[in-house]
Design a protein around this nucleic acid. Structure first.
Length: 247
DNA sequence: ATCATTTGACCCCG
DNA sequence: CGGGGTCAAATGAT
């Protein structure tokens, strides 16, 4: 049990470090979009692992909400990590990849949403039993804002390097310019329907791309109708707080 | 030929 | 009953 705790601590430590770095980069210098994105991806992966690890032990995950909502029982299953990724232009869409291959297995239109939601699974699900899934959807009122939701944990090789003593980021992460190079290609295949949104011609202030971890109260659904279904994020936030307090 | 994406149908849960 | 998620067959790309 202590081993798990130690691993968790390591993960969270690295996570915190990355978060700090990311924040510093985004807040201070916007001249490193790729690095920021990479960091964001790594952060997401780490969060995934951390949450899963925490979920195993009924010490960090089992907690009541601030409102006293006890839902730790047997509801704990797959960790959901919601990540919002904003891209500058849909033509310069970078590869959203946390280090693993995704295979699209479905796409459905969501009520109230203008854009369909895409469902992805790990390519090695039948090969290595990787139960990781991912959902990508564009924001209703923002075609350049991608809402990515990671569900589950990776079991396939190359996804995570759980050492326990040595904390290192997965090198197989090929960032920068992968995924072929067909002009105008969505990160994961989320295409936008007939949307007359193509006025991209910013002078010389390409905000590039920047990631943002949605803690819990960072994004309010505009226009009303956006289903904000995030139960675990509260626990995640609390986890963060506890960790910060603990360390 | 093999593999990934596409697209509609099916199923499950609220 | 409906929305959301997954499956599975067909189709396209490599």
């Amino acid at each position: 049990m202590e081993d798990a705790a130690a691993t968790l601590a390591t993960e969270l430590d690295g996570l915190l470090a990355m978060a700090r770095e990311l924040e510093a980069r985004v807040d201070g210098d916007q001249g490193a979009p790729g690095a920021a994105r990479e960091l964001c991806s790594a952060l997401a992966a780490s969060v995934d692992r951390a949450v899963r690890l925490a979920g195993r032990g009924r010490n960090a995950g089992a907690r009541a909400g601030v409102n006293g909502q006890l839902r730790s029982g047997r509801k704990a299953a797959a960790a959901k990590v919601r990540t919002q990724v904003r891209v500058a232009s849909m033509q310069d869409l970078g590869p959203l990849d946390d280090g693993m291959s995704w295979r699209k297995y479905g796409q459905k239109g969501i009520l109230g949403a203008t854009y369909p939601r895409s469902y992805f699974r790990c390519t090695h699900r039948h090969t290595q039993g990787c139960a990781a899934t991912k959902q990508v959807q564009r924001a209703t009122a923002d075609p350049l804002l991608f809402d990515v939701v990671y569900v589950g944990a990776h079991t396939c090789a190359g996804a995570a390097v759980l050492g326990g003593t040595e904390q290192q980021l997965p090198p197989p992460a090929a960032f920068g310019q992968e995924q072929q190079s067909p002009p105008a290609a969505a990160p994961e295949g989320v295409q936008l329907p007939a949307e007359p949104v193509t006025p991209f011609s910013f002078p010389s202030s390409p905000a590039s791309s920047w990631c943002q971890l949605t803690g819990s109260y960072g994004y309010a659904a505009p226009g009303g109708g956006l289903g904000v279904d995030m139960e675990l994020e509260g626990q995640l936030d609390e986890l963060f707080l506890h960790m910060s307090e603990f360390f």
